[in-house]
Design a protein around this nucleic acid. Structure first.
Lengths: 356, 356
DNA sequence: CTGAAAGCGCTAACAG
DNA sequence: CTGTTAGCGCTTTCAG
């Protein structure tokens, strides 16, 4: 039988309410009483039952982590989701690490759930953790959640914050990496190395992050008075395969190409293969720079120069933002937190000799 | 204000208990009454409050997913854990996908937590989800949890199952991939291709999975009457770096080596690099075969032949096993579920010509 | 500063 | 087959 607050009260020779007061370390408890209660708690190894607390306070002290996953019906019943992880192998996972650490630190529980974004979905299937009031707030990872869902969240007054993905129009809290400045860093670096014809394989055009990277690309060009050549621009869907294809097109179409900025490390992997297949070398013939600094970046040959996204920190920041918006005074207007990126120089880019 | 069971009872003109009965679809409710109640539930969009149910039933209908992570103090406060994901990039994550799907299907919630296995840990820090009775059972992913922790779990009567890792001595429920048969598949395949001097880069000797892979290696050798040459055996710690180093040693030490079985795809990545650096080709000079069929396998050049571990299925099976052991009749003696592996032939192995 | 009492929303005997 | 009643373990007024 689990020990309850009554057991503690009895042992400490006080009432339940007093125990409750010290438990939630409120004021108005005598020093000696407090000590007695603490001792009893320790002796009994007492821990409040979360369900009971939740029932009375209407707060679960849990937050939900929800990752969005496109799903193709045909693969649905096996590793289905796995096909997706081809696209963004571990972004959400790395973020989750930060989220876990921070929720743990703050004494919150972390509920994990996926949103399977079925194409032929007929109705919203809201995860039970939401409908059953099992979480006080929600982290939405990866953007692109359906509007109806977001709307439902608002109706139900469930605080949420977007992590990693977002849309410009979004009137909600969100935290994401500074892709514009990241894109700038990458391209500025390439230019500083002497490159002028710089290809760009961006992510899908529909996402704000891709838009931002493009801004970065453009502003770096602009800074150095390089005119935009639209034929240097390609895009993929984050998969290695799409990176491969985009690079093939670039290589075919753009003579004099010496460097390519790829909007995602995973795509860079495919791009790299396209380069190699043409018997070109990296970085001697083509300099390559990625984005994210995922696990794969260090295992590239040569190790991939890339723009690091601080995923762990993204998670931590998101949790704190969520907490803030969960607290009463946090119900202000939506905020954005933008986490800086960092250029990680490895060995996939080289300085272009001046061969005027 | 949230609608409660009383609201439903009132609208349907029955008592709360009747509503509760239909909710938990028990027998003993008239067809018409049931219908009335359902209608009221739908009209009010009523969902039972999980906290209240948990309080009365002593069941949370949540399970916990706990991943173990070695932690080095110096990196602890940043991407700390990230260094670890270098070793097993996504094993736990892929398992989690299966777990999520299955818990969702069964109406359970999934709590996520990491166990940071600090080397200089002084005391057990049990996650709150356990101490506060927030979960009914626990999935322990990756093995190597400290004995005291396991012992505490038993004391508290919290059902748990090991996933992926396990120890032979373990007297607990566990589900894991059939590494012995997987190892056999790999080596048998290499032999069938004509290879005789087959190197083996195993995982750390301390783990049962490594032991099993070794058994597979040995029995394949035995089947084909090939004598064991211990100099062909190396081991690493799952990291790409360790795979690289092991392969270097193998290459230096073993003339006539034509194929290597690597106990983990991530290590194979490093091994591959060692091969390439010596200007040897894969598969022309050295055939390489991995284990796990992780994301990276398809992005190898050439695509890596490997032994597939069904991680999603591992997760699903683990959940069901946990449910079983949570139910009263499940409290039998510990069981093991072994998930078969599958040889995935890609392009990193070649047939050895008979050059007698 | 401390205690008594009410009640959160639900389930589970037990009557009827 | 349905309703009444009594809690589950905790927090929170409100008195003392």
């Amino acid at each position: 039988m689990k020990t309850t607050i009554s057991d503690v009260a009895e042992l400490a020779d006080v009432s339940k309410s007093t125990v409750s007061l010290v438990l939630n370390n409120r004021a108005n408890v005598g020093e000696d009483t407090r000590a007695r209660v603490f001792k009893a708690i320790k002796d009994l190894d007492y821990r409040p039952l979360k369900a009971a607390q939740a029932l009375t306070t209407k707060k679960t002290r849990n937050i939900g982590f929800m990752e969005i996953l496109p799903v193709h019906e045909d693969t649905e019943n096996r590793d289905g989701a796995y096909g997706v992880s081809t696209m963004i192998p571990t972004f959400a996972y790395d973020v989750a690490r930060g989220v876990e650490r921070e929720t743990q630190r703050c004494g919150y529980g972390l509920l994990f759930s996926c949103w399977y974004n079925r194409l032929n979905r007929t109705k919203l299937e809201i995860p039970a953790m939401i409908t059953n009031s099992w979480v006080d707030g929600l982290l939405l990872v990866g953007g692109a959640f359906p509007d109806e869902f977001i709307h439902a969240l608002k109706t139900w007054c469930i605080p949420f914050v977007f992590v990693g993905g977002h849309s410009a129009a979004e009137t909600a809290n969100c935290v994401f990496a500074d892709c514009a400045s990241g894109g700038f860093q990458a391209v500025d670096y390439l230019i500083s190395l002497g490159h002028r014809r710089i290809g760009f394989i961006n992510g899908p055009g529909s996402t704000q992050t891709s838009f931002d990277k493009m801004q970065g690309y453009l502003s770096a060009l602009h800074k150095h008075h390089i005119e935009l050549d639209e034929s240097l621009i390609e895009s993929g869907d984050f998969s290695a395969q799409s990176g491969y294809e985009a690079m093939c097109r670039l290589l075919d179409r753009c003579p004099g190409l010496t460097a390519v900025f790829v909007g995602f490390d995973g795509m860079a992997l495919g791009a790299r293969q396209a380069v190699l297949e043409r018997r070109l070398r990296i970085p001697e013939d083509i300099s390559l720079i990625g984005f994210e600094d995922g696990w794969i970046a260090t295992h590239f040959e040569p190790a991939l120069t890339t723009v690091k996204v601080f995923k762990f920190e993204l998670g931590v920041a998101a949790v704190n933002m969520l907490f803030e918006s969960m607290s009463a005074e946090g119900r202000r207007k939506p905020k954005k937190i933008i986490i800086p990126t960092e250029l990680i120089v490895r060995r996939s880019c080289r300085r272009l000799e001046e061969v005027k």
